[in-house]
């Protein structure tokens, strides 16, 4: 009995130590975001802001920060929509109609290459594609690129949800006289609704978090927040409180998604 208690003690201690390691940088960022810039550089460091101020947030939300965040929002929403709509179409077809040879295998292959190849290797030709078309640094190029990159993921996830839906449900709906589109809209989509929502959330988060595509395909006219972050670090005195404020603002939607979809995360990553 005594031995067991010691094991439990060390187990919990280990969890606490890991918890501190995980949470300290996050706590420090939130802490810094409420500081004045002079307070950031103080020794010994102040564990709570000596003077609590929203100045950093005000600055970020008034200047380029707001433009960057709203650009990110537009691009992430647009690209997610395209990826999920096209992904739903493709995954339904792949799940319900046995394609022979090429198409099905081809889809799998698309997925694998997109996942394994480093994005920077794709970006070299894609950069020149958009440059040749004169579309570099536009919302359009970013949205199309992001949706193409996330389409395989959407197809992969959605096909799993579609496969688990019994086919007899649709047959019954056809027997009741529903057309193909009616069946899709009134029967199939509601039944995979939560899976669809999880897919939307995951695609959205991947696009929201992406850096190198945003940096190379955008950056001047259309700047996304991830590409704006390194730009904030230039200059003699780095405005760490503003960087922290922008980081906090950028993390909030991801945290909401994590809390809402915690049950799905496990399913999604294990598939």
């Amino acid at each position: 009995m005594r031995k067991k208690n010691w094991g439990r003690f060390f187990g919990i201690l280990g969890l606490v130590v890991y918890g501190i390691f995980v949470l300290f940088p996050i706590y420090w960022t939130v802490n810094t975001s409420f500081k004045e810039v002079g307070d950031v550089y103080k020794v010994p460091p102040s564990f709570v802001p000596t003077k609590f101020t929203l100045e950093a947030y005000r600055f970020v939300l008034q200047g380029t920060g707001r433009i960057a965040l709203s650009n990110s929002l537009v691009v992430a929403i647009g690209a997610t929509l395209i990826a999920v709509v096209l992904g739903t179409m493709a995954s339904y077809a792949y799940s319900r109609y046995p394609f022979t040879g090429f198409t099905n295998e081809g889809a799998q292959f698309n997925l694998l290459t997109v996942r394994m190849f480093p994005p920077i290797a794709f970006l070299l030709p894609i950069f020149w594609l958009w440059k040749t078309l004169g579309l570099l640094d536009t919302h359009f190029a970013l949205i199309v690129t992001y949706s193409a990159f996330n389409l395989p993921l959407a197809v992969w996830l959605l096909k799993g949800f579609m496969d688990s839906l019994p086919r007899s449900v649709e047959e019954a709906s056809y027997v009741d006289g529903y057309s193909f589109w009616q069946t899709a809209r009134r029967v199939v989509l509601p039944l995979i609704g939560s899976g669809l929502a999880a897919t939307v959330a995951l695609c959205w988060i991947f696009i929201w978090n992406e850096f190198i595509i945003a940096y190379l395909l955008g950056g001047t006219d259309v700047i996304l927040y991830t590409a704006y972050l390194p730009a904030l670090r230039r200059g003699m005195r780095i405005m760490w409180n503003q960087i922290a404020a922008l980081s906090v603002l950028a993390i909030i939607p991801s945290v909401i998604i994590l809390v809402l979809f915690r049950k799905y995360l496990i399913k999604i990553y294990l598939r």
Partner: peptide, 15 residues
């Protein structure tokens, strides 16, 4: 514990 995974690599690097 899952929090860090949800944020952008770029944000984590800045933090």
């Amino acid at each position: 514990f899952l929090l860090p995974m949800m944020m952008a690599e770029a944000v984590a690097a800045q933090m």
